[in-house]
Write a protein that binds this DNA or RNA. Structure first.
Lengths: 336, 336
DNA sequence: AGCAAAAATGCAAGCGTTTCAAGAAAAAAG
DNA sequence: CTTTTTTCTTGAAACGCTTGCATTTTTGCT
């Protein structure tokens, strides 16, 4: 009930007021069992009365743990990534971790820079989402000496832990649907092929399934662009002149663009042109016709990544470096 | 070039190695001008050689500034909020602040809890996005003793600083378009009316403009729901039976739902039914027909909020408590 | 009641910076 | 070449907490 509001109340204020040592207060704050119930009660009472809140910065300095993890994300506004982020955040708060969210714009320079400020802030771990894991980044990760996991991304060199689906197989399975309807000229539309997930994995799935069905691979059916809706929207003329009868698209926004571009130009979907996409974000149900899509557990990829990270931060042994989550395919109006 | 990799390099390592005191190292790290150029150079060289990175936690404890701000957001996956977040993040990193992102689910309990952990982490300021600023929250804000600004939200009691548009006028102007086409029965579709932005501001705009045009207010045209796409989609039967010829919708996802629900049921848009929405997020251009919308500078609202916050954290005096950004209206295919 | 073992508590040394009063060095002035 | 000023640099005390170790109190047994 004292009203000298000025001085912030610290652990020592509480200690004095309760007539115990700081160590004891620290113990009750941290739920250490070695405290006599009566003492605990007394301390708790004072904490409550003084409205004491431990200073997390000081705790972090003393204990060398900040209960904070860094999350590097190419773009918060992208549904794919924000869905992952959602899963990450939920699990993080479940385990009492906070998240420092850092936008990288998918820009290599920024990724490096942001990584460094996260390290300076002494985060206990990092979740990285990105299109392309460069050697430099991999090197910096190694120097970091804290656990890092990739969410919804893959490390070609398999050096850093990651959570994702099997992109090669997922694409094979999705495109085989298209082939089964008799499509011979199927376009492959994606962001930069320099991003391994496109140029390496998805493209491989595409080629595999073509080969398996005796269709020759035609490079003129591969359309490399960026991840923007608009880029898909303007693609129709090119698609049409390549005589594509269907398209597999590697990103939902991009796919929505392709779909709308085609429809706006008068193409009948799915009769004259089919399109399927990759991420099954809520966008797929908002467009008309709705987009058939590879399904992948976006929220879970985020959640599992974070769970994985907590285990690593806890130094629990784990046998696997990579977690493959299940994928599927859902047929909607945009394909036959 | 010493290779005793074990011990982390701290300011004192650098000091010894460079033959100066910690204080001096601290000065060069912080760009304090009171350092002889020769000394600065020498220290910088050592810093570089030892690859020293200041520990932000220790800095935070000593300086009582963490260069971190908390951002409370109802849902990262919602385009409206993630657009604001984008603006916030950009300006934050421009001013060297990091962001601790905390999801609140728009849940009051969580908002309070999250606020407390942010305070424990000693953030220098907070940006709050939320649907409803309760008295309890307002009280906690006051206790916090750090600057807080509301982004894209309003404080009915005008006690906490905020950045937004004039929702009443924006709605008036948008709906007057509908009235000009002869619509007499215009539905008002929004999330919970208990959220002031709906029940207070937007609804007031709706009533105002009706009154101004001599149309009687009919409560049966007010549809209160939540912010989900699906909720809009299933609304059509109710809309139809209320004989609404147009709808003003308070959220883009919701509006996309209303639009698709109507179309899927065979309504001709905009001939038989018009719909306009409120946030002009990219969703509005992805649906067909595209959604006419109130325009508001989402990114800017976030950016300006953050800028505002930096000024407050700097204790720069500011005359205004509230910043009104300009709004507009863009006509697209969903209205005549 | 007496004693060893177990349980509680306290002491104080960190954790890695910043910062301020004070001293040392350099520059300017006489 | 002194004496003043001005510019740099240093030492050491915070900042608010955790934690290993020592000490004290309790408990359980004889």
């Amino acid at each position: 009930m004292d009203s000298r509001e000025e001085k912030a109340v610290t652990i020592s204020t509480v200690a004095k007021e309760a007539g115990v040592s700081m160590a004891t207060v620290s113990r009750v704050v941290n739920g250490n069992p070695n405290v006599k119930p009566a003492t605990r009660k007394k301390v708790l009472e004072v904490i409550d009365r003084l409205d004491y809140r431990p200073n997390a910065v000081a705790q972090g300095l003393a204990s060398k743990k900040t209960t904070t993890v860094g999350v590097i994300i190419p773009a918060v506004t992208n549904v794919y990534f924000s869905s992952l982020a959602r899963g990450i955040d939920d699990v993080a708060s479940m385990y009492k971790y906070n998240i420092i969210l850092a936008n990288s714009d998918g820009n290599h320079q920024k990724e490096i820079q942001v990584l460094n400020t996260l390290l300076a802030k002494q985060v206990d771990g990092i979740i990285f989402m990105g299109h392309n894991l460069t050697d430099e980044l991999r090197a910096q990760f190694k120097r970091a000496k804290i656990p890092i996991v990739l969410a919804g991304s893959v490390d070609q060199k398999d050096e850093v832990e990651s959570v994702h689906i099997n992109y090669v197989e997922a694409v094979e399975s999705a495109i085989s649907n298209l082939i089964n309807h008799g499509n011979k000229r199927i376009a492959f539309v994606s962001g930069p092929l320099s991003d391994p997930i496109n140029g390496e994995y998805r493209l491989k799935g595409y080629k595999n399934v073509l080969a398996k069905n005796g269709i020759e691979y035609d490079p003129s059916l591969v359309f490399e662009t960026d991840y923007r809706y608009r880029s898909g929207e303007v693609l129709w003329p090119a698609l049409a002149s390549a005589r594509a009868t269907a398209a597999f698209v590697a990103d939902d926004e991009l796919a929505a663009g392709v779909l709308n571009g085609a429809r706006d130009a008068g193409a009948k979907i799915p009769d004259e042109f089919e399109v399927i996409t990759s991420n099954n974000s809520k966008l797929t149900e908002i467009v008309r016709p709705q987009l058939s899509s590879i399904t992948q557990p976006l929220y879970d990829i985020g959640a599992v990544s974070m769970r994985f990270l907590t285990k690593m931060m806890n130094k629990e042994e784990s046998t696997q470096k990579t977690i493959d989550l299940p994928y599927g395919f859902i047929k909607r109006g945009s394909s036959k």
